[in-house]
Structures are given as C-alpha cells and as structure tokens.
C-alpha cells in the first residue's frame, strides 16, 4: 500500500498461486471499502415535511430499501451516515439541521430530496424558508420532484452508491489529518444569520465574539 501511494497509481496485482485461487481474492482496499459501504448505508430517520412520507413509503414493503442494505433508519445522527433532507428546510430549523449534520460521523453523505430541499421549491419566496439546503451543508445527490416518487428516491440512492466506486480512501475526509471543526451553525437573529453568506460582510463568528 505504501509503495502504491508513492507511485501515485495502483501497481499490477501479484498472481495468486493456483492452489489458493478458490479462497483468496485480490482487490484494492478502495474497492473493499466501497463494496462494504455501498450495501450498508444507514439513513438518519429525519422527516421534515411531505417528502418524508415518500421516504417512509420507500422504506416500506412495496419499495423496500432493505434490498439495498438500508435495513434500518437510525434516529440518532451518531449512528447514521446518510442524511436525506426530505422537505422544506425552514430558517427556524436551519441551525438544528447543521448541528445534526455536524454530529453525523464521517464519511457522511447528503441527499437533497424534493424541490424544497433543492431550492426552496414552491415555498421558496416564503420568509421562513431556506432557498435550498446546499446553502447550509454540502449535498451529494439532488432528487427533483414535489415530492419525488419512491422510485426516484431509490434511483438517487443508487446514484450515490455508484459514487463510492470512484472514491479513494486517500481523499475521503474521514481519513484526513487535522481537526474537523464542522460547519458553523447559523443563528437566529432578526432573520437567519448564515455565517457562510455573511463571510464577505463580517468575520467568522469566533472573531466577532
């Protein structure tokens, strides 16, 4: 592995002796990692609005996400690795959503399900609505629809699965050195104070205090 990293590319795998070929399989660490993660995504049980019902329907018997290794939805962010933002993110909810995202352990993924999570959707103009969850947290897969059908959600999950094949543990955030400070939580002032939007205007919150 060390030699491989130095070379910067995967070297040719050695031959497996014929007597061991039935029990030994050679592969890369990346592939093993991707294979394992693909079939064990645990979404967080996080229902925001209408789309949550389609997510529940997807988990139920007709669509059955258990076929894709999503056996169970965990209510605690600490036990989940997929955040499906299914519904309108309101400004009042925004700080809590960021906190929940920060609490999910790496590696973590976010699916923005439905028009509201993508852009604010039909409620975009509302004074209490965040125009898309990607203003707060990074999003991996967007699923359009209002609400998306269960098939669409499954397609989104499979799209995310396909991404794992192209990921290397060398650049996954979870294995990087250094402290992960997380995303600063927006605050509720006279309106939503999203530090990322205000960066040009004022310093980050630590400097202001």
């Amino acid at each position: 592995m060390a030699r491989q990293s130095q070379a910067g590319s995967v070297s040719r795998l050695p031959e497996v002796p014929p007597e061991l070929q039935s029990s030994v399989n050679l592969t890369t660490l990346d592939q093993v990692y991707a294979w394992a993660r693909k079939r064990s995504l645990w979404p967080m049980l996080f229902g925001l609005a209408c789309c949550a019902f389609e997510m529940i329907a997807t988990a139920a018997s007709r669509y059955d996400t258990a076929r894709f290794g999503m056996e169970i939805m965990r209510a605690s962010p600490r036990q989940a690795d997929l955040l499906i933002v299914n519904g309108t993110v309101t400004k009042k909810m925004a700080p809590l959503l960021v906190r929940l995202y920060n609490q999910i352990a790496e590696p973590k993924y976010v699916i923005a399900m439905g028009a509201c999570a993508i852009s604010g959707g039909p409620f975009k103009e509302g004074y209490n609505v965040v125009s898309g969850v990607d203003r707060l947290i990074p999003v991996d897969v967007y699923i359009p629809g209002c609400p998306p059908r269960p098939e669409a959600l499954i397609h989104g999950i499979l799209t995310l699965d396909a991404r794992f094949d192209h990921e290397s543990i060398r650049d996954i955030r979870a294995f990087q050195t250094g402290e992960d400070k997380g995303i600063p939580e927006p605050a509720l002032g006279p309106d939503l104070l999203n530090w990322r939007d205000l960066e040009g205007l004022v310093g980050p919150p630590e400097e202001k205090r």
Binding site: S131, A187, G189, L192, L193
Partner: peptide, 27 residues
C-alpha cells in the same frame, strides 16, 4: 432569479437599524 434581488443572495432581510456590530448571538 429571486436571489438577485437581495443583498446577501439568500432569502434574508435585515432591518435598517440592524448594523454589522449586531452580528453576534449568544453561544
């Protein structure tokens, strides 16, 4: 785009009295 009409390019609006030095909240 609705974003182009607001100063912060986000769906937020602050009153005129709300100055920069107010941009902090309790921990």
């Amino acid at each position: 785009y609705a974003e182009e009409r607001t100063p912060y390019h986000a769906n937020v609006r602050y009153s005129r009295e709300f100055a920069e030095h107010n941009l902090h909240v309790d921990e």
